[in-house]
Design a protein around this nucleic acid. Structure first.
Lengths: 351, 351
DNA sequence: ATGAAAGCGCTAACAT
DNA sequence: ATGTTAGCGCTTTCAT
């Protein structure tokens, strides 16, 4: 059956979307002519174009992108898969927005999903993206190795890692300057006369956390701080854990005079604890990662700010370059962090 | 050509993804048998299942969901389109996360996009979603009327509006208690002795803003406040505009003793201005919408908190109920707001 | 328990 | 300038 009866030409509105055939039947032209008009291909008369457009409009016809992609050369779906720590997280959602904006310019839609630092979830989400034949993947990962993606890469699906660099696979990545950013924040505290500085970190199995700790330790070592003056508190999963850790730490003798916090939730817990102890103006604090209203707190919080927006933009740029055929060597792009001086990091040691 | 040559059975890794036929050829079975195994349909022997699974694994086969959906009854893509104010906005991203979580349980992926309060953008994004044949749309809108979606609804695409109720179409919606929430916040200020209360609002062409203003005005009228004691400042697009508006307003004689702010960015601008004037502890402030660290400011900010997470969850519930065939009347679900007392709203009038 | 044929909505390659 | 035929990767229907 290659043509439709008159009754079918105007499909009843219920449960069945109009197809190109319906449009062709209503316009009284062949299928391919409709295809030409919809895709703005040449060699159709103005009159025919008008008839087809009118028919499409009247039927409220929407082309089925997936059906077209099945046959279309290149099989592009104009769809990207984006996996971030959590879409509700400010860092991730700023990155997401930047990716969306870049994708929009290429008529590309983006699937967004949250990792929750769960390796199984990562695998499931990636699988779901691949079944939907996304053109490329922009991923934050938490698996030990992302080698499982090598076959996808070989099948031609570009991979761009964000926030954390990949392991077990060579691929493009865009990450923050974690180690040197942490070193910069640490140096700032050292410059203000601190020697006993505590490092408050989150889950240590997460790459960025490791990098930040490395930067902190390197800077402390470079300054000749004795191992005995180091306090490392790690595996802090949330603000509450950070809060109690501070309360406990500051109850001790020769407690630190400054805290470097590796992450926002940890920073929040530290701030809360210092307030409770009434020590927010005597203990120095530098946090990794900026946050809204940091400048409105008292004292305002000095931070090492990341640039999630820039990370997203660069990741999307890399992605589209690859989709456009760029075959240059994979690159790890490091986005610089910035020390923002606001007050809490400039407090001098008290005793 | 219905079967593949041996050479094709193990496709070269470059640029071509394996299909069911490749798996069938490698496993030495028919196409439909592979389909049965992949979809876990009955009537396949254990031995065959094992052979097929092994072949699929070795080829790193991923079923093409779109190809299947083309023929599959119901044509479901297991995909949802979500349109929010901006994916980078905390309210929207909390809502987004809730939708993602509900969708995950149904193996549904979600396209997310940002509205930016741009009607043309709304139309474009909806169109992009529909071309990808999403199973349903969860939308925040800014067009005058959403009547343009009536044909889609009739074609069987469920629509759930979030944050703002629809106009020109009957559809499910999940919104905050905007008017009565604003009234609640206003009553709180009145209860603390204020009469001269200023209303700071954002774009007045946005539905929620109108509702909030309505709630404020109703409560003021109910309290018998004279029109002369009302100050309405509107069309504040960002924090900076709100800030200057406060600076200007408070320079006048008989300026208000309290401010009700309709939105986060406006609240931030107000806070900033009050700080600059050193009046943060003498002017009362209640903000609509909660935000991170509101409790850590000095004074801590009293707010009328929305529940974006709940809005997202309910919207997804409604969506899946519709997809499961629920044909009950469309409903507007109103999610209650909550007054959170923190300090700024309990300041008594000064003069 | 298994498979061959038809067709989903569209585009590519070829007609005319 | 327009239409016809095949076929994308899969599921449906109907055989066997």
């Amino acid at each position: 059956v290659t043509s439709l009866s008159d009754a079918d030409a105007a499909p009843v509105s219920a449960q069945t979307r109009p197809t190109m055939r319906h449009v062709a039947a209503l316009a009284g032209v062949g299928l391919k002519t409709v295809s030409r008009v919809i895709n703005e291909e040449p060699n159709v008369s103005e009159a025919t174009i008008a008839r087809v457009k009118d028919a499409a409009q009247r039927l409220n016809y929407k082309p089925n992108l997936h059906a077209g992609n099945l046959r279309r050369a290149g099989h592009k779906t104009f769809t990207l898969g984006l996996l971030v720590s959590s879409v509700a997280n400010p860092f991730a959602s700023a990155l997401h927005r930047a990716v969306e904006d870049a994708a929009r310019e290429r008529d590309t839609a983006v699937f967004a999903a949250s990792l929750d630092d769960d390796p199984l979830r990562e695998r499931g989400i990636v699988e779901a993206f691949l079944r939907r034949r996304v053109d490329g993947l922009i991923l934050t990962t938490v698996t030990q190795s992302q080698g499982y993606l090598i076959p996808e890469q070989q099948h031609g699906t570009p991979l761009v890692f964000v926030d954390r660099a990949p392991t077990g696979i060579e691929a493009d990545a865009v990450v923050s300057d974690n180690a040197s950013g942490a070193a910069k924040g640490t140096a700032h505290l050292l410059d203000h006369g601190h020697r006993r500085i505590a490092y408050f970190g989150d889950r240590f199995d997460i790459q960025t956390a490791g990098e930040r700790k490395r930067g902190f330790l390197a800077e402390m070592a470079a300054a000749g701080v004795a191992a005995g003056d180091l306090t490392i508190v790690e595996d802090l999963h949330d603000a509450e854990a950070a809060r109690s850790a501070v309360l406990e730490l500051l109850a001790r003798d020769d407690s630190p005079t400054a805290i470097f916090s590796s992450q926002n939730l940890v920073t929040f817990g530290v701030i809360r604890a210092l307030r409770e102890l009434g020590r927010q103006n005597t203990m120095a604090l530098v946090g990794f990662d900026d946050f809204v209203l940091a400048d409105m707190l008292e004292p305002a919080i000095t931070v090492v700010a990341q640039n999630p927006q820039r990370i997203g933009t660069l990741a999307a740029e890399r992605m589209f370059a690859r989709l456009d055929g760029d075959a240059s060597p994979k690159q790890i792009h490091v986005v610089p962090t910035e020390l923002i001086v606001r007050g809490s990091g400039e407090i001098r040691p008290h005793d």
